[in-house]
Simulated assay, not measured.
Amino acid sequence: MHAIRTGAVRVLVLLAILLTGLSAPRAQASAQPFRVLALYNGTWDAAHISFVHEANDWFPRQAAQNGFSYTASNNWDLLANGGVNGYQVVLFLDDLPQSAAQRTGFERYMRGGGAWMGFHVSAFTTDAQSWPWYHDQFLGSGNFKSNTWGPTTAVLRVEDRTHPSTRNLPATFTSSVSEWYSWSNDLRRNPDIRILASVDPSSFPLGTDPDQSWYSGYYPILWTNTKYRMLYADFGHNAMDYDTDTTLSSTFASRTQNRFLLDGLKWLGATASSHPHARAEPEPHWRSLR
């Protein structure tokens, strides 16, 4: 009997090893690394430049343990010439496409299955009709309407805790410091827009300049358009001492806000297996294209 039991145990152990081996490729496939391209301008407004420097330091440090590689470039023509097609996710750090070819290329990339995360000034415009697909349809925000000043933290209310980017967030949290924008379009009226977080009323008054503060109202801060793989975040403007060009705050100071960034990026990167232009060759976790 002892021999029979020992033999049975050995068979079970062998079966477990075989099953583990069979399941391993699936686990590896689900965690397949994805490639991120961050586009930036880096030449105007010291607060935006400060954020670009921070982003190009913070994201590479997160890359290895979060399953992505990170490339930064100030060459926006990568959108126009097909250079963007080798990346699963594109970030706009402090600007948006300016030329017709860049804009056409970005729209083609998004309609073709690409993914995008934009920050703060990447949505700024006072002439939405110059690119209606981007400002009115894709972002849904329309024109810039107002802003708070100076840059401050805000208490944000998470409106949708079922989305992959927000499911690990608490009901409310304190953001990092930023200047905050409002928009001409009411995003609540757009059926394609899913608002993920907005300014909680406990934040009011929001701002330090009485003439540029919000005292009441509804202000979306994080949202997605359900027709695309995209996320917009209305932060990315550090507090600055403009006289000395000294950074006074960090966009990555809030751990909870950082959780949104990383969870959101992983959700966007999940398009890797379905993106028609995805390339699988390995690369360093950080590099810069000029």
Score class of each variant (00 low, 15 high):
residue 241 D to G: 06
residue 248 L to N: 06
residue 226 T to M: 12
residue 247 T to N: 09
residue 39 L to N: 04
residue 91 L to Y: 13
residue 29 A to G: 06
residue 85 N to G: 15
residue 174 T to C: 03
residue 165 S to T: 08
residue 95 D to H: 14
residue 241 D to A: 05
residue 147 N to S: 13
residue 14 L to H: 03
residue 282 P to C: 02
residue 90 V to M: 09
residue 197 A to W: 09
residue 127 D to H: 11
residue 182 S to E: 02
residue 198 S to Y: 02
residue 203 S to N: 00
residue 250 S to V: 05
residue 124 F to V: 11
residue 164 P to W: 02
residue 103 R to S: 07
residue 209 D to N: 15
residue 113 G to P: 03
residue 76 W to A: 13
residue 147 N to C: 03
residue 145 K to I: 00
residue 19 L to M: 11
residue 201 P to E: 09
residue 236 G to C: 10
residue 269 G to F: 03
residue 161 R to N: 13
residue 98 Q to M: 12
residue 228 Y to V: 00
residue 228 Y to Q: 10
residue 241 D to N: 15
residue 161 R to W: 05
residue 93 L to C: 10
residue 58 W to D: 07
residue 8 A to F: 13
residue 194 R to A: 10
residue 134 Y to T: 07
residue 231 L to W: 05
residue 199 V to C: 02
residue 171 A to E: 15
residue 239 A to D: 13
residue 71 T to K: 04
residue 112 G to T: 07
residue 50 S to G: 14
residue 129 Q to I: 05
residue 231 L to E: 06
residue 222 L to K: 01
residue 149 W to E: 12
residue 250 S to P: 10
residue 118 G to W: 01
residue 215 Y to A: 10
residue 105 G to R: 08
residue 166 T to L: 08
residue 239 A to V: 04
residue 174 T to H: 02
residue 83 G to K: 06
residue 225 N to V: 00
residue 132 P to D: 13
residue 218 Y to P: 00
residue 117 M to L: 15
residue 127 D to Q: 12
residue 84 V to D: 01
residue 202 S to M: 02
residue 169 L to R: 05
residue 131 W to H: 02
residue 12 L to Q: 08
residue 206 L to G: 04
residue 255 R to Y: 02
residue 162 T to K: 01
residue 131 W to K: 00
residue 248 L to S: 00
residue 173 F to K: 05
residue 285 H to M: 09
residue 105 G to D: 01
residue 242 Y to R: 08
residue 83 G to T: 04
residue 271 T to C: 15
residue 61 R to T: 09
residue 287 R to G: 07
residue 6 T to L: 14
residue 260 F to W: 12
residue 226 T to K: 15
residue 290 R to Y: 10
residue 76 W to H: 12
residue 95 D to F: 11
residue 66 N to C: 01
residue 199 V to D: 04
residue 127 D to K: 09
residue 214 W to A: 08
residue 167 R to H: 13
residue 215 Y to V: 12
residue 27 A to R: 14
residue 108 R to T: 14
residue 70 Y to T: 04
residue 82 G to M: 07
residue 47 A to D: 15
residue 109 Y to P: 03
residue 96 L to V: 11
residue 233 A to R: 06
residue 147 N to P: 00
residue 225 N to P: 09
residue 18 L to Q: 08
residue 205 P to A: 04
residue 1 M to Y: 13
residue 81 N to G: 06
residue 234 D to I: 01
residue 255 R to A: 14
residue 17 I to E: 01
residue 33 P to F: 01
residue 179 E to N: 07
residue 1 M to F: 12
residue 191 P to Y: 05
residue 269 G to V: 03
residue 177 V to W: 03
residue 207 G to K: 04
residue 39 L to V: 02
residue 258 N to M: 13
residue 182 S to Q: 00
residue 242 Y to A: 11
residue 230 M to L: 12
